[in-house]
Simulated assay, not measured.
Amino acid sequence: MKFEEMFTEYLHGDQERFLDKCSHVEYKRLKEVLKSCRSCKHSENSCSSEQESANGNEAKGLCQCESCPFCDQKFFTELMKEASDVAGCFRIRVRHLLHLHMATGMQKYIKFLRHCFRDDQQLKLQEGRVLIQYITINAIAIRKILKKYDKVHGSTNGENFRSKMRAKHLELLQSPWLIELGAFFMNIRGSNAERSQGSNQYSFDFDAARPVMTMSLLESAELEYDLTCAICLDTVFNPYALSCGHLFCKLCARSAASMMIFQGLKAASPNAKCPVCREAGVYANSVHMLELNLLLKNRCKEYWKERMIAERAEIVKQYKEYCDFQTKYAIGHQLLL
Rank of each mutant, 00 (worst) to 15 (best):
M1A: 08
E5N: 06
E5T: 13
Y10V: 02
H12T: 14
H12V: 05
D14T: 10
L19D: 09
H24E: 10
Y27R: 03
K28W: 01
R29V: 14
L34P: 01
S36G: 07
C40Y: 00
S43E: 14
E44L: 03
E50D: 10
N55F: 08
L62C: 04
C63I: 08
C63F: 05
S67W: 01
C68S: 07
P69R: 03
K74F: 09
F75E: 14
F76V: 10
E78G: 11
L79H: 07
A83S: 15
V86Q: 08
V86K: 03
A87R: 06
G88E: 10
V94R: 01
H96I: 13
H99L: 04
A103N: 05
T104D: 09
Y109E: 15
K111C: 09
K111D: 15
Q122H: 09
Q122A: 13
K124H: 15
Q126H: 09
E127T: 05
T136H: 05
A139T: 05
I145V: 15
K147Y: 11
H153I: 11
G158C: 12
N160H: 13
R162T: 15
M165N: 03
R166D: 13
R166I: 15
L170S: 11
P176G: 08
E180T: 07
G182S: 08
N187T: 12
S191H: 01
N192E: 13
E194M: 02
E194R: 00
S196T: 13
S199E: 06
Q201F: 00
D205Q: 09
D207N: 08
R210M: 05
V212H: 09
M213P: 05
M213A: 13
T214N: 08
M215G: 02
L217N: 02
L217T: 03
L218W: 02
Y225W: 09
L233Q: 06
Y240A: 08
A241L: 04
H246F: 07
L251E: 14
L251T: 13
R254Q: 15
A256E: 14
L265C: 09
K266A: 12
A267I: 01
N271S: 13
N271V: 08
K273M: 13
K273W: 01
R278P: 00
E279K: 09
G281W: 04
M289Q: 11
M289V: 04
L290V: 12
E291K: 00
L294S: 07
L295S: 08
L296N: 10
K297E: 15
N298G: 01
R299A: 15
E306W: 00
M308L: 09
M308H: 12
I309D: 14
A310M: 13
A310N: 11
E311Y: 05
E311L: 00
E314L: 07
K317F: 11
E321Y: 04
E321K: 07
C323F: 08
F325M: 14
Q326T: 10
K328G: 13
I331E: 15
I331T: 11
L337P: 00
L337H: 07
